[in-house]
Computed example of a mutant assay.
Amino acid sequence: MTGLDALTFKPWIKRYPADVSARPTLVFPHAGGAALAYRGFGTALAAAGSDAYVMQYPQRGDRLTHPAPATVAELAEDLFGAGDWAGIGPLRLFGHCMGAVVAFEFARVAERRGVGIEALWVSASEAPSAAASAPALPMAESEILAEMVDLGGTDPALLADEDFVELLLMAVRADYAAFNRYACGEDVKVATDIFAVGGQGDHRISEDMLRRWEVHTEGAFTVSMFDGGHFYLNEFTADVAELVNDL
């Protein structure tokens, strides 16, 4: 980022601007995910007509030394404080897996601060109330790596690289620890519309699970399903970007 962007947004927010003035879409990665992993999606959003801003969580990438927030709510506050979101107009939010819950909490912060949220896209994620009551996520190295293999989305060759695994474990543990402390009741809602999206072949998050997001909005709700598994987004990057931008 340069010029005004450099003054109003933290440098670790990765921006992919559209060729012409466009509505902003903020992207929230999955647990353990770095902003770099969403470069393709950010580029696709820009090509579809969105100004994309990909969030970077602490304990990875250029935030490697930043302390991990203790809770998802603290992470959302951290991300909200990283940019002049009120200055770029109504926001669209897109979160994948754990990132959907982070985006939900970001929307709650934004609505309390008077920043308009145009839409919340939640991808391959349990609803907040369901996530809060789910069993604790694993913290042991062997269990985390088994989880990564089961979810897919990570190159198996990278999981054989000790240096990569060390960094991955740092990021995942930070996110899982915050997620394990998460609390949210079914009565907690955002005013913005929620659009759920997932993969037909996702063995972790079913369409019925996605539909539980409906209780968390005071607005409209829809579900869209693509072929593919938990990381269907990697296969249908351009299609999902078009879906988000067509709103």
Rank of each mutant, 00 (worst) to 15 (best):
V20G: 12
D161Y: 09
Y176H: 15
R92H: 09
F106C: 06
R39M: 10
L169A: 06
R113T: 04
F9Q: 10
P90E: 10
L45V: 00
L26C: 08
E214K: 15
M1S: 12
P58S: 05
A136L: 12
Y176R: 04
S142V: 08
W12N: 11
F106P: 06
A131H: 05
E207Y: 07
E162A: 14
P29K: 08
G198W: 03
V72P: 11
M225D: 08
V101G: 06
R211L: 12
A70S: 14
M1Q: 13
D239L: 09
S129W: 15
A22T: 02
D239F: 02
F106T: 00
D161T: 04
G81R: 00
L91W: 12
L91R: 06
E126D: 11
P17D: 05
Q59R: 15
A238N: 07
G116A: 15
A178Y: 12
D202C: 05
P11D: 13
A241I: 00
A146R: 09
T8K: 14
S125G: 09
M209Y: 07
G81H: 02
E141L: 01
A191H: 14
G42K: 11
Q56K: 02
D187G: 09
M55H: 00
S21L: 11
H230M: 03
L243C: 02
C97T: 03
P17C: 03
Q200I: 03
